[in-house]
Write a protein that binds this DNA or RNA. Structure first.
Length: 262
DNA sequence: ATGTCGATCCACGATCGA
C-alpha cells in the first residue's frame, strides 16, 4: 500500500479554501496536514474538501490563532492531541491510518523576535515546547509514525538563504537547532525530505515582507516530514510545491510532499 | 528598523501575532 502525504501551513484555512482545493484537485495527496488554520474546528469548510474526496478529518482549533487539521481520503482514527508547554493552544493533533501508521501534525511556536527567554517570553515558550516534545517521544518511543508540520526551525545551513546572517534570527539560532535535534533524536526521527533531497538549498517559506519573494529567494525550510526508522526506508518522492507561493492570495508557506510505500 | 499579511472587535481602524 502506498500513500502520499503533504504538510502545509495555510495561514487561515477559511480565507485560503480555494487554494487548498486547488492543491487537492491538482496533486491529490491521500493525506493533507494543515497548520495555522486560524479557525474553530466547526468552521473549517469541510463540504468543499469532502467534494474532492477528503471525507475524513481530525482537527484541533481555536478562534483566530494556531489550529491544526489532518484531511484525508483514507479513514482516520483520532490518536490524541497534546498541549505541549501548556499554552492552551491548538498546535498538535494526531491520527492513525488503518494501515497502522500514526501521523503527528505540529505547529511549533514561532518564538517571537529575540532569541532570549529572559526578555522574550515567546522564545521561552518555543524552547519549552520543543523540550516537552522531546520528553514525550523519549518516554514512549514512536513506531510506524510520521511527524509533519511547521516546526518553525530551519536546522541546516542549506535550509536558509544565508546561514551567517541567520545565526541570530529566531528559526535558525544554534540553541533552537540543538533543541530540534534533541527532539528528533528522542524519537529516532528520520528527516525524509533530506533523505530524498540531501543536497542544496531547499525552502518552504518566504516572508510576505520581501518585495519579490521569487527573485530575492530569501527562504527558509521551516516545514518538515519525519518518519520513524521502521518505515523511513519506505519514504520517497519528496518535493516542495514552490509554485504555490505564487498562487492567488498565497500562504507564506508552501506544501511539502512525501510518499510512503508500505 | 524595515517590510506584509490575517483575525479580532468597545468593529471599518487599531492591535496582536507571524
Amino acid at each position: 500500500m502506498s500513500f502520499t502525504l503533504a504538510t502545509w501551513n495555510i495561514n487561515s484555512v477559511r480565507l485560503r479554501e480555494p487554494i487548498v482545493c486547488k492543491l487537492l484537485a491538482e496533486e491529490g495527496p491521500d493525506v493533507l496536514c494543515l497548520q495555522e488554520c486560524k479557525s474553530p474546528v466547526d468552521k473549517i469548510p469541510l463540504e468543499q474538501f469532502a467534494a474532492l474526496g477528503y471525507t475524513h478529518m481530525v482537527a484541533e482549533g481555536q478562534k483566530g490563532y494556531n489550529g491544526v487539521a489532518i484531511l484525508s481520503k483514507l479513514p482516520l482514527e483520532a490518536a490524541g492531541a497534546h498541549d505541549f508547554a501548556q499554552l492552551g493552544h491548538a498546535r498538535h493533533v494526531a491520527a492513525k491510518l488503518s494501515n497502522g501508521v500514526t501521523i503527528h501534525n505540529f505547529y511549533v511556536p514561532a518564538g517571537g523576535d529575540v532569541a532570549d527567554r529572559t526578555v522574550n517570553e515567546k522564545f521561552g515558550q518555543k524552547m519549552d515546547y520543543l523540550a516537552q516534545m522531546r520528553d514525550f517521544f523519549h518516554a514512549d518511543a514512536p513506531q510506524k509514525s510520521i511527524l509533519v508540520g511547521d516546526l518553525n526551525i530551519a536546522p541546516r545551513t542549506d535550509d536558509v538563504w544565508d546561514h551567517k546572517k541567520m545565526l541570530k534570527v529566531v528559526s535558525h539560532t544554534p540553541v533552537e537547532v540543538e533543541a530540534l535535534s534533541q527532539t528528533q533524536d528522542a524519537g529516532k526521527w528520520v528527516d525524509i525530505t533530506r533523505q530524498d533531497i540531501p543536497d542544496g538549498l531547499l525552502y518552504s517559506w518566504w516572508s510576505y515582507r520581501a518585495k519579490d519573494w521569487d527573485l530575492a529567494d530569501k527562504g527558509r525550510r521551516l516545514d518538515h516530514i519525519w518518519a520513524t526508522p521502521d518505515i523511513s526506508n519506505a519514504g520517497h518522492g519528496s518535493r516542495v510545491i514552490r509554485a504555490a507561493r505564487g498562487w492567488e492570495k498565497p500562504s507564506d508557506h508552501v506544501p511539502v510532499f512525501a510518499t510512503f510505500d508500505l
